[in-house]
C-alpha cells in the first residue's frame, strides 16, 4: 500500500464511523497530493450528500465525470441529486 492508499483507507474508516470532519480532512489531503484522485473525489461527493451539502456533493460528482465520463456511480448519484 502506498501513502495515498493508506490515507484513503483511513478516510473511509472515519467516514464509516460518522466522523465526517476527520474524513473530509483526509480526503482533501489526498486531493492536495493527487488532485484528480477519483476515489477521493467520489467519496467526498457521497460524504457531502450525507451531511446535506448537496451543492458541494454535485460539484464533486461533476468533477469525477469530467475526468471519467463513463463513471456510472457518479452519474447515478448526480441524477439522484437532480431529483431532490
Amino acid at each position: 500500500m502506498n501513502e495515498i492508499e493508506i490515507l484513503l483507507e483511513k478516510a473511509k474508516v472515519y467516514f464509516l464511523s460518522q466522523n465526517y470532519n476527520e474524513a473530509e480532512k483526509l480526503f482533501l489531503k489526498i486531493l492536495e497530493k493527487e488532485p484528480d484522485n477519483l476515489d477521493a473525489l467520489y467519496h467526498l461527493g457521497v460524504l457531502k450528500e450525507v451531511i446535506h451539502e448537496l451543492e458541494e456533493a454535485r460539484k464533486y460528482f461533476e468533477r469525477v465525470l469530467e475526468l471519467d465520463p463513463e463513471n456510472r456511480e457518479a452519474r447515478e448519484r448526480l441524477d439522484k441529486l437532480a431529483e431532490i
Partner: peptide, 14 residues
C-alpha cells in the same frame, strides 16, 4: 439520517 455503510470492498455509500 444517512448512515454510511460499505457498498462493496471499495466504496462507501449510505
Amino acid at each position: 439520517r444517512k448512515q454510511p455503510k460499505m457498498e462493496d470492498e471499495k466504496n462507501v455509500t449510505y
